[in-house]
Design a binder for these strands. Sequence first.
DNA 1: GAAGGCATGTAAATCGTTACATGATTTA
DNA 2: TAAATCATGTAACGATTTACATGCCTTC
Lengths: 181, 181
Amino acid sequence: MTELTNTSRLLLGMLHLMGEKTGYEIKAMVDDSTEFFWPASYGRIYPELRRLEEEGLVRGRDEPQGGRPRKLYALTDAGREAFERWLASSSELSFELRDEGLLKFFFADALPLNKAIETLESMRLRHERMAARLRELEPFVRETELRFPLLTLESGIAMHAFYAERCAQLARELGESPERP
Amino acid sequence: MTELTNTSRLLLGMLHLMGEKTGYEIKAMVDDSTEFFWPASYGRIYPELRRLEEEGLVRGRDEPQGGRPRKLYALTDAGREAFERWLASSSELSFELRDEGLLKFFFADALPLNKAIETLESMRLRHERMAARLRELEPFVRETELRFPLLTLESGIAMHAFYAERCAQLARELGESPERP
DNA sequence: GAAGGCATGTAAATCGTTACATGATTTA
DNA sequence: TAAATCATGTAACGATTTACATGCCTTC
């Protein structure tokens, strides 16, 4: 019983949530929901679906639409079981952050103060933009009447809003006390 | 003039900040400062230092200590320039998050409510632990008398504390209103 | 003399993005 | 008929972790 990989947990979850889907449809769902904390590219999705099929966790079914080839994937019983086992398990939850803004800010002693404040301003804008994008998604998620995707989205909005506000506050403080303590 | 890679920005920055260092020392510094928003492993640091030397951005100098081989690296003028150019540039700031806790939470409609609350509790603990670890670092960063590393650290603490509090609040709300709206 | 820290590095495996290629269908 | 969208996929490249291997020095 091998561990589920990064992308496979997402794929199984999406199929669990939405039933039979193509790789293309899964990608669209991801881009409108988990992308901000769990992205996935076509270059991972298609190979991973095949691999999952080989492992017997999903089953693919050709269903061309007109002359256009399509392959619908669905969970197998084993796939459903593996997903639910992961979901209910209490193993360590991985958490990875890579934030170029913070990296620049970390090194900003090497920068004139106004440049450091500019970096904060870019960071603030970035998070404002992310929060705004998530807010746009909200009505659509609300329509699905799923409780947890909505709560997740709201957490994302809150997180980015918090981050943006923190950048604004730091910029103010730096602007007011330009002297080194 | 090729773009600096992910790890190279970190390495150049550390050498800029601290002067001549070995790969080993850089790794230790990273683990005590940028790790929570910009990690790096030995498996990246050593090859990357070599590559940077080939590119002329750092210069390595063998300085064995006793019979133990050591290689101290320092910025070259070109390296300093490349680093400062990146630092002052206003290109898009990359931001990547991968949060397994949020992924589980997103799918938690498939889970009994108490299990969903357990997931939140693991997430809360995780962030409490991260905040606690960063708080331990604070006195040491304070000693360096560098302004921005300290502000960065405090941002990290604030972020994880916020995240933890959010998890606690969600858990309370879910516990109080177990019915679907 | 053993354990732990200092120090360097490689190999294998994974992971992931990006860019490219292809072609059908739908809509303006 | 052109553009957008649906749909699948591969190739190349780069990033990254993990595990392994080696050996010295210091401290208990």
